[in-house]
């Protein structure tokens, strides 16, 4: 009896899951994962026109489609590199400057702090569709259409990371900072040596989410990049649908290969992902 009550976890119900519950969990997991599975199975089966009428459910482990994808008819490697550079650059920016701003908003007092913070926060829910039109006009005037900078620069403006970092840094005790100052640390040293190491879990979540978000970003790159060699991966893959209208093997391979890095990324950083979702939830 004592053991049973010790085993009970907070919030957990003692009742075991009935078999109907297991059925629901298994069926929904299959529904959740099947589309991705089907995509990969088709990508690994040599198909040059329409797939067969009886769907392929098991991979043939052939890399033919990938070979045709990468043999130089499309700029697939360019797209991948573009996506990588764009997502990395934006992530580096946010990791550095969001933690700085988040720290200032969380721990420092200065005139205008509240106004600036709420101004930034209130723009979080403005749909990007409001800003893409002026951004397009300016990008066009500056001659930056088809330039990777046109995608990177607007990506640096997003208050989500600042909010996330502020929320996290607020929970850190101030004693360490003060002790460092008493020991004669400069303000930059306090930030670098005290705050940043303590904020590492939030920084990890921020980096992961920013990277995935911009790797998958679609609308703005679709508008800002017009020449095939300059596309990002998502824009390029979307265009495979038009270019290889009948060679479905190449399209499946292109889509699967674009999804693969993020899936691998998820398996490596699974815990940080799930933790990050919780951290990022804005409550109230």
């Amino acid at each position: 009896m004592a053991v049973a009550s010790m085993r009970r976890r907070a919030g957990g119900r003692r009742s075991r899951l009935p078999w109907t519950g297991w059925v629901v969990l298994v069926v929904t997991s299959v529904i959740a994962l099947f589309p991705m599975y089907w995509l990969f199975v088709n990508a690994l089966t040599p198909i040059t026109s329409n797939p067969p009428l009886t769907p392929i459910l098991w991979p043939a482990w052939s890399l033919d489609n990938f070979r045709r994808l990468l043999d130089g008819n499309v700029y697939y490697v360019n797209w991948m590199l573009n996506s990588l550079v764009i997502a990395l650059a934006i992530t580096v920016w946010h990791v550095i400057f969001d933690s700085m701003a988040g720290y200032a908003f969380a721990k420092r007092r200065f005139p205008g702090r509240e106004v600036l913070f709420w101004l930034m926060l209130s723009t979080l829910m403005i749909p990007i569709h409001v800003t893409v039109i002026p951004l397009f006009i300016v990008t066009n005037r500056l001659g930056l259409i088809d330039n990777i900078l046109a995608v990177i620069l607007p990506g640096t403006a997003n208050a989500f990371g600042i909010f996330l970092m502020r929320q996290y840094i607020q929970t850190l005790p101030s004693e360490l900072e003060e002790a460092a100052r008493i020991d004669g640390a400069s303000e930059l040293q306090v930030f670098w040596n005290v705050i940043l190491p303590l904020a590492r879990p939030a920084l990890g979540a921020l980096a992961i989410f920013t990277f995935v978000r911009h790797w998958n970003d679609f609308l703005w790159p679709l508008i800002a990049l017009t020449r095939p060699q300059n596309y990002t991966l998502t824009v390029g893959v979307a265009n495979l649908q038009g270019e290889f209208a009948t060679d479905y093997g190449v399209i499946f391979a292109g889509a699967a290969l674009a999804a693969l890095p993020m899936i691998a990324f998820f398996f490596v950083f699974q815990r940080q992902f799930l933790e990050g979702v919780r951290m990022g939830a804005v409550k109230g």
């Binding site: 991705m36 679609f218 979307a238 999804a259």
Partner: peptide, 8 residues
């Protein structure tokens, strides 16, 4: 599936 782009 949520880490895969909505487009794919």
């Amino acid at each position: 599936p949520a880490v895969t782009s909505a487009l794919i």
